[in-house]
Computed example of a mutant assay.
Amino acid sequence: MNALKETNFTFSNQTGFYRGKVRDIYYFGNRMAMVASDRISAFDVILPKAIPYKGQVLNQIATRNLEATSDICPNWLEATPDPNVAIGITCETYPVEMVIRGYLAGHAWREYRDGKRSVCGVELPDGLKENDKLPQPIITPTTKAHEGHDEDISRGQIIAKGLVSEAEYLQLENYTKRLFERGTELAKERGLILVDTKYEFGKLDGTIYLIDEIHTPDSSRYFYLEGYEERQQKGEPQKQLSKEFVRQWLIANGFQGKDGQKIPEMTDEVVNSISDRYLELYEKVTGEPLDKQDYSQVNERIKNSIIKGINKQ
């Protein structure tokens, strides 16, 4: 199966390189080229097989949503010259990820189920069920780890540790709430519920920018709006479009990223099913099927698009 697992380019004017869990980032002074590979991670572990079209799905959804929210918050993106490439400014990244939740799902639900009623310093009422809508969206930040697991952290801890100044953190919170409100509106137009998501921010010359991807299946969880209330009343699982199904498959097969656990075998059938889910999400979120890229000369195509995009001032 064709997929883009990684890139290994060297450019004459390159000033740095960083390989993340999913992206390969090439730095060119105050600008950068971000390659969305087809790698997939869960529980902060990169899984052994890449997922066809996943990078293209992430990159193109992120581009749409960055453009659709640019009136709320400045963002890093300048151009998307290739299905897997985004080019923009390089910022100094804040060392926290701003996670916001409108519903009790995923990690927050697992914490709540296990008896915790405070998540990242935010108190939750008793009596909630999995996937219930919260009284109001809550912000549950995490540390941003280059390696290993991100850790829950509270607003008070962030400010006390000096990770972000109080004034800037309040601005990050304001942007997060407004972006989530916009994302919720956009999702509703497509018959979806934006359950939770995360935003990353950076700063350049005193200005805060939204960076990385937003409202993609890797950074967000979506439920189908139709039938949500009925399923919730019956105590049935919600129909969702997100990466949670990958986590659930791993959990069912005995893997949660803990020491000593082995990643289950990713058969061709499993890989194809994950790819199909990403394609489904793209079509549902955008209203149109993905124009699937040709993988035959993918590395050459990406390299040329970076050269042209970076050299175009």
Rank of each mutant, 00 (worst) to 15 (best):
H149S: 04
I274K: 06
D276N: 13
G206C: 12
S242C: 04
E166R: 11
D82N: 15
E288H: 08
Y169S: 01
T142W: 09
V246A: 11
L4Q: 07
A252M: 09
Q136C: 09
E111L: 11
L204G: 01
Y209L: 09
L194Y: 10
D132N: 10
N8S: 14
L204D: 03
G254D: 10
D38A: 08
A108V: 08
W249I: 04
G235N: 10
D294T: 09
E185W: 10
M32H: 01
E236H: 11
R23Y: 07
E200F: 07
N174I: 05
Q171M: 14
L47S: 06
T90H: 04
A79N: 13
P74N: 07
M98W: 09
P137H: 05
L124T: 12
D196K: 11
F255L: 07
R190W: 12
T143F: 00
Y228S: 03
N84G: 00
G115A: 00
D276L: 04
I263M: 03
K203V: 15
A79Y: 03
I158D: 14
I100H: 08
A50T: 05
E78D: 14
C73Y: 11
G106I: 04
N59W: 01
T15F: 02
I61V: 15
A167V: 09
V164N: 01
D268Y: 02
E244I: 07
P237G: 06
T197Q: 00
I302Y: 11
W109V: 08
W109E: 13
I100R: 01
F201L: 07
N30R: 14
N304A: 15
T207L: 06
V99C: 03
D82I: 08
G127N: 10
L47T: 04
D126A: 13
L77C: 02
R190Y: 13
K284L: 01
E111D: 02
G16T: 09
I307N: 00
I40S: 00
M34Y: 06
C73P: 01
K54T: 01
A167K: 10
K284T: 15
N8G: 13
E92G: 03
E244G: 05
F9I: 07
M34N: 12
D71P: 02
E6I: 07
V270I: 15
T142V: 12
K129M: 13
K234N: 15
E130T: 06
Q232C: 05
S41A: 13
R110V: 02
Q313P: 03
K234I: 13
G183A: 05
T197C: 03
I51K: 01
L77T: 11
I25D: 03
N2C: 08
V85Q: 10
G115H: 06
K239R: 15
A108F: 01
P141S: 11
K49V: 09
D212P: 05
A105C: 07
G29P: 00
L204Q: 10
E269W: 00
L225F: 03
E67G: 07
N304S: 13
T90P: 00
E97G: 11
N299I: 15
C120F: 07
Q293I: 15
L192A: 06
L124V: 14
Y112Q: 06
N8V: 05
R23T: 01
I251L: 11
E213P: 06
V246F: 05
Y94A: 04
V96E: 03
V119P: 00
F201A: 02
M1A: 12
